[in-house]
Simulated scan of single mutants.
Amino acid sequence: MRQKRYEMSDEQWEQIKDLFPKTKTGCPPKDKRLMFNAILWLARSGSALRDLLECFGSWKTVYSRFCKWRDDDTPFNIFHALNAEADYENLSIDSTSVKAHQHSAGAKNGL
């Protein structure tokens, strides 16, 4: 299956799928992965909520799921779970120096 832009891969989803709260009652909920991909799409594209693509469903459903997850700290739990097992593969420590012109050091003008 080809991964779409802004969506999670199967490997990424496997890492976090168990961190979402279980559904208690009511109608069968929309797929958690679809809702999470919709939230990621909004965050990464910078698009307005009402401009959500139709493939993700109603923007109201995505918004209500986001609020529900926000209220029960699901994003916070995902962050901490992923942070605990960080591999530091792409860690970069940079020491950059910027040389400034002599006039930026406060030298007097023309004297």
Rank of each mutant, 00 (worst) to 15 (best):
D18A: 13
G46H: 08
G106N: 05
K32F: 00
I39D: 00
P75K: 05
M8N: 00
S45D: 03
F76T: 10
P29M: 05
E7S: 12
S104G: 07
K60I: 04
G106L: 07
E85C: 11
T74Q: 03
T23C: 07
T96Y: 09
K30C: 02
L91Y: 11
P75G: 06
F76I: 14
N90I: 01
K60V: 09
H103I: 13
L42H: 06
C67F: 00
F79G: 02
A43V: 11
M35H: 03
Q3R: 14
L52T: 05
R2H: 08
K108D: 10
F79H: 10
F66N: 01
A100I: 15
L34I: 12
Y6E: 05
C27G: 04
P75M: 06
A48C: 06
I39V: 11
S92R: 15
E85G: 07
R70A: 11
Q12R: 05
S58W: 02
D87K: 11
E89L: 14
A84W: 06
D18G: 14
E11H: 12
R44L: 15
G110Q: 11
C67R: 12
R44V: 01
F66R: 13
E7N: 11
M1G: 12
K24H: 06
C55P: 01
N109S: 13
F56G: 00
D51P: 00
C27F: 08
F36N: 00
P28N: 13
H101K: 15
Q12P: 02
L53M: 08
G57N: 01
A105F: 14
A105M: 08
D31I: 03
P29G: 04
S47T: 12
L82I: 09
I78E: 05
P29K: 07
L82C: 13
